[in-house]
Design a protein around this nucleic acid. Structure first.
Lengths: 144, 144
DNA sequence: CTCCCTGCAAAGTGTTTGCATAGTA
DNA sequence: TACTATGCAAACACTTTGCAGGGAG
């Protein structure tokens, strides 16, 4: 792995207090780079090594990360928010079968032009979402 | 307005039963074309003309519309789903200030290419979201 | 006449909030 | 030592579900 970035430094750099809970959450993201998890998925993953981790704490930590621009929060159709690292700009590929989100870089974004936008609107950012089926799901289902 | 399409016909064409509730909801969408509403916003808008409209019914009607591909359901960060017409393919412009979503057509979508997608993944669709500030909010806030 | 939709109300789920305690700087 | 994060549990908001009565086909 080339994970030269430590959770500790990342937290310090953003002016956040370094606590075991925050380090664990951040480390999970750093380890499973490009992946996204719900608050409860994160808690379940960390419970073995941190049995006391409270549900509320998980949410507060993630909220704090989002506020510090460390993480992005992604709303899913089933009402659950997914969280992922936001260290560098990127877009997403969503597997419509398993529901997982993957970070991807995208070329050609500069060529996008909105047509018939309400006059005087100001565009500040563009987010691209590819939908499809991930390799794992394709392998599992075979056809379809 | 060139709304030659009637709610009644639209419902029939999709094999849905024609009820006053469904007609009202669909008419709201046809009238405020390109706009998006939450289930409760829709209910509030229709209550004057349909005082008995139940919260549960609103959700069921919208669910049915989504199933029939008449509407799209859009998840927002604050946990509320927005619904909009889906008569023709389109993308979205989101005002980050007032939170409203607007349908827009986009050129250049074919030029988008994901980089370093997991091998054997299959892309089936692309969704583009422009973020920014709508004309109304720009007019209201002046600067920034 | 049959089947489905509506209204009503209760239940469910994900998330937020408040407070006392423990931990960081 | 001062201030903030954690754990716990209650509170919240949006959405879903079940059932009896009424309306569509």
């Amino acid at each position: 792995m080339s994970t030269a970035i430590s959770a500790q430094n990342l937290l310090r750099d953003r002016g956040l207090r370094v606590t075991p809970q925050r380090q664990s959450v951040l480390n999970l993201f750093l380890t499973e780079s490009g992946q996204h998890f719900s608050a409860d998925q994160i808690r379940q993953r960390l419970l073995p090594q941190m049995p006391g981790l409270a549900r509320g704490t998980t949410y507060k930590v993630l909220q704090e990360f989002v506020r510090a621009a460390l993480c992005e929060e992604l709303a899913t159709p089933d009402g659950v928010s997914l969280y992922g690292l936001r260290l560098r700009p990127h877009h997403h590929f969503i597997c419509d079968q398993c529901g997982r989100w993957f970070d991807v870089e995208v070329t050609g974004v500069d060529g996008l032009r909105p047509v018939a936008l309400p006059p005087d609107s100001e565009v500040r950012d563009v987010a691209v979402f590819f939908h499809g089926v991930c390799s794992e799901c394709r392998g599992a289902s075979g056809s379809a």
